[in-house]
Simulated assay, not measured.
Amino acid sequence: MRCVGTVVRGIRTPIVKENDDLATIVIDSLMQGKESEGFEFQDKDVVAITEAVVAISEGNYVTVDDVAQDVQNKFPSKNIGLINPILSRNRFSIILKGIARGMDKITLLTSFPADEVGNGILDEQVLDESEYNLGSVITEEEYNETFGSWKHPFTGINMIDFYRELIEAEDCEVEFVFSNDIKTILDYNKDILACDIHTREKTIKILKAEGATVYGLHHVLAEPIGDSGFNPDYGVLGSNKATEEKLKLFPKTGDTLVNEVQKRLIDLTGKQIEVMVYGDGAFKDPVGKIWELADPVVSPAHTSGLVGYPNEIKLKYVSDNKFADLKGDELKEAIKKEIKEKDADLTGQMITEGTTPRVLTDLIGSLCDLTSGSGDKGTPVVFIQGYFDNLAND
C-alpha cells in the first residue's frame, strides 16, 4: 500500500538569461534532479515553469520610454485620468514612470482603504473614526490632513508620497483623488487609462458608456514600439520591474514552450507528463490582507491535460454520513470503492461540499508559487507527482 500522496519538488536550474534554450534547461535540470533524488517519472506528473524565466529567455522587455511613447500615442492630449493602479514598487512604479514621462498631467484616482489586491493606503481605524466612509470622495488635501502620516507596516512606505515623487520627477503634474466609484474620474477627465487588473473589462465598459476614451494597461505595449517587447494579450499587465528604466513583460511564447517540453519529456520517459507556466498563486495572506494575484492570470500557458476542475468527493462527509457505522479497514475499503465509482461530473452534489471549487491550473499554480517563492530559492521549475492520485490509487 502507498503511504505517500502528492510530492512537490523545487528543481534548481542555471540562472536563465535572454536567448537561453529554456526547454533544454528545464529538461536537463529535471534529469539531473532524477539522478540526484532517485525519483521515476509517472503518468500525470506535472512540470511547472515560473513565468519570469519564460519572459527572460524570450527577451520580452520594454523600456520606460517605450511606455511613454505608447501612452502618448493613445492620449495625444497628454492629460489623463488614471484609475485604480495597484500600490506596488515592483509591479507598477516603472509603468507609472513611463506614463508620467509621456504626460503633462495625471489625475490619479485610487480606491481605499486598499487597492485591488489588498495593499493598504490608509489606517482603517482612523477611517472608521473620521467623517469619511467607503462612499466618500476624498481629495488629496483631505487625505493628507487625515491619513497622510500613514506608512505601510511591512514596507514603511506611504505609496501616495512615493507615487507623487515619482510622477513629479518626470516633470508631470499630479492630482490624487480617493474614491471607490470609478465614475468619479469623469469629474476630472474623460481621457482615461484603467489600471485595474481583474475588473478591467467591466471598468472600461462602464466608462465608455459615459462617453469616455478609455484604454487599459493590457492595451499598452500590446504591440511593439519599434523593436521593443510586447504582449498581445496582456500588454504591461503581469510585468515586473527589471531595472529603473526597464520592465519584464508577461511571457507571450508559453504555449510553444509547454508543448515542446511535454513532447520531449514524453519521448524521453514514455510517460504522459503535463506542463504549465505559472505566475502568482492567487492566495490571500491573512495577516497582510494581500491577495497574491497581481498577474492577470495564474497560468498563461498549459498543456491540455491540465484543463478543468477537480472532481473529488469530500472524505469527511462520506465518512460521517454514508459510512458513519464503519471503522478501520472496512471504512477505508468502503471509501475507496466510493471513489472508484464516483460520477465523472460531481458538480452540484452534496458529496463534494467543502472541496475547493477552483480550476486546476489555479490550484497547481498556488502550490508552485508557494514552493518556488519569490526570493533566492533558485527553483524556477517545480516538479509535482501524485497530484491527480486519490485514496483509491494503491
Rank of each mutant, 00 (worst) to 15 (best):
T6D: 01
V8A: 00
V8Q: 02
T24C: 00
I27E: 09
I27V: 14
D28P: 01
L30H: 06
G33C: 15
E35M: 08
A48D: 05
T50Y: 06
V53Y: 03
A55V: 01
I56L: 06
S57K: 00
Y61D: 10
D66G: 02
D66N: 15
V67K: 02
D70A: 08
D70F: 00
N73M: 14
N73P: 05
G81L: 05
I83S: 07
I83E: 07
I86V: 14
S88P: 06
T107F: 13
T107D: 07
Q125T: 12
N133Q: 04
T139P: 00
E145G: 00
G148M: 04
S149Y: 10
T155F: 02
I160S: 04
Y163H: 09
E165Q: 12
E165I: 03
C172M: 10
K183R: 12
L186E: 00
D187N: 15
L193M: 09
C195L: 07
V214G: 05
Y215L: 14
G216A: 11
H219L: 09
L221G: 07
A222K: 09
E223N: 13
P224D: 04
F230R: 07
P232K: 12
N240S: 12
V261G: 08
L265A: 03
L268T: 10
I273Q: 05
D280K: 11
D295F: 04
S304P: 00
G308T: 10
L315Q: 02
L315V: 12
Y317S: 06
V318P: 00
D320L: 14
F323D: 13
L326T: 00
K327P: 00
I335Q: 12
K342L: 13
G348Y: 02
I351M: 00
T356V: 14
T361H: 06
D376C: 03
V382E: 08
I384F: 10
Q385N: 12
N390K: 07
N393D: 15
